[in-house]
């Protein structure tokens, strides 16, 4: 799979969302992703969803993240009934965010 932010990315500005692309279409009902901070508390906006126009994309929105290291954990069910569970990390370097 592939993601934005990428695995181990070091970002100048905090991302507004995490997007994951998989090789197979996902079952929306059983595909979850959450973003945890260093203290393992959940920081995402709990709106994780499989994209309506591309069943291989799973994304979740983020609030304005403070600098630090974040872990994205996901557990997805592909259309052929296989469960894939994994995680990735990214780091937000500093506060240079301006409001768009």
């Amino acid at each position: 799979m592939r993601s934005v932010p990428a695995q181990r990315a070091i970002l100048e500005a905090p991302p507004t969302r995490v997007e994951l692309w998989f090789n197979e279409r996902l079952e929306p009902a059983y595909s979850r992703v959450s973003v945890l901070d260093q203290a393992s508390s959940r920081v995402d906006l709990r709106d994780a969803a499989v994209a309506a126009d591309d069943a291989r994309r799973l994304s979740v929105s983020l609030p304005a993240l403070a600098p630090g290291r974040y872990t994205v954990t996901f557990r997805v069910l592909s259309i052929d009934g296989h469960v894939v569970e994994s995680k990735l990390t990214f780091t937000v370097k500093s506060w240079s965010r301006r409001t768009p």
Binding site: V4, L11, A13, T16, T99, P100
Partner: peptide, 14 residues
Amino acid sequence: FTFAVGPTPPRSLR
């Protein structure tokens, strides 16, 4: 590659 332009969310070449 992944990049951002100003405050917009990151994008990738892909």
